[in-house]
Write a protein that binds this DNA or RNA. Structure first.
Lengths: 186, 186
DNA sequence: TTAAGCATGTGAGAATTTTCACATAATAGA
DNA sequence: TCTATTATGTGAAAATTCTCACATGCTTAA
């Protein structure tokens, strides 16, 4: 169980068991990024972790803008999971005059018109869109204009962006609909 | 543009454009469930919608239990998207004595020990797990024992359940990590 | 030093998914 | 009625993804 680097090691078989994949799949996927394992031994847990952290790019902090300070936006501001992994929400923006100026989790909600200036000043690379479906495309366009290159979209719409901007969609209703399908057809 | 049934119709080409897929893919996927289209015309929007609503099983309501009344849980209770699509949260549960008895969005948070009885009484088929990663497996086991067959899991862990129970995972950190990878390696 | 045991990394093949391309059915206009 | 046009549904090919199985390298023990 001891790897050369001193740490405990883990086999592809065990990783597969833990993640719900097959051992061959784990080996192939890891081999895509490099030869991290040691034949006859396995993968050094600490080495592997360091390598992956570096590859995924979470070895340094990213600054994020939260756009949309409704229920979901508030929850995301309060959510500790992002910051733990190096994703820090440094600005919150909304178009609703009743929300602008209010403070949530130590951040003051600003007018959306401030986004472009803030993005540059605060070095924001990533935006979270937690607006309604109707406003989302407009907000995305503004984000792109502000130089933001990656977007986490919670609005239930397919957004159009240039290829230089990456969008990850989180659609909660799609997930429950999948479960509904399963319950219906099981 | 008019389909036989009277409604407006839409082509696979246009559906593809709207959803970000190819026309051939749209046709094959729809054909898997039945021959909904009309050659030379397209798909009747209203017919297609009805068919899909029925296949996905959202032509009737589902009752859900929310487990974990932290920030995320509160946001999910306040989120309108579920109810709009026929998913109704009819019970909220937590183990934290400070949360039990409090009211969020017209629902009183109950002790987790009440889940099993409530699930039967309220005909709950679906659970949302919005607890910490540490509690999630335990909460899942309890849900399974309570007869719940489908689970939407927000805790960042891979849960083990019998094959008769379906789990959909929503891991927000995975999504931002994907964006981080993209920003790092673009 | 040698042999036995272990687990990686990876060709080769299998399985799955996607795309191509066209026969077929429906519609509209002359 | 006949012709031109349109867009589905689907075989067949292409591309991609996953699995099998084993040569290879590392470790331990005698």
């Amino acid at each position: 169980m001891e790897a050369a680097s001193g740490g405990t090691s883990i086999s592809s078989d065990r990783l597969a068991h833990l993640t719900g994949h097959t051992a061959a799949q784990v080996r192939r996927d890891l081999a895509y990024f490099g030869n991290f394992g040691k034949r006859g031994v396995g993968y050094s847990v600490s080495d592997l972790s360091n390598q992956l952290v570096s590859i995924v790019g979470i070895d340094h902090n990213w600054n994020m803008a939260l756009i949309g300070a409704g229920n979901l936006g508030k929850a995301l501001l309060a959510y500790k999971g992002f910051e733990q992994r190096g994703f820090k929400i440094v600005g919150a923006y909304d178009n609703d005059a009743r929300k602008i100026g209010s403070t949530i989790s130590n951040l003051t909600v600003e007018s959306l018109s401030k986004l472009s200036e803030s993005a540059k000043r605060l070095d924001i690379q990533l935006a979270i869109i937690a607006t309604s479906a109707e406003s989302a495309q407009e907000v995305l366009d503004l984000s792109v204009d502000s130089g933001i290159m990656a977007v986490l979209n919670f609005a239930p719409v397919r957004l159009n962006a240039p290829d230089t901007v990456q969008i990850a969609n989180v659609d909660l209703t799609v997930e429950v609909e999948y479960l509904s399908y399963w319950l219906t057809n099981k």
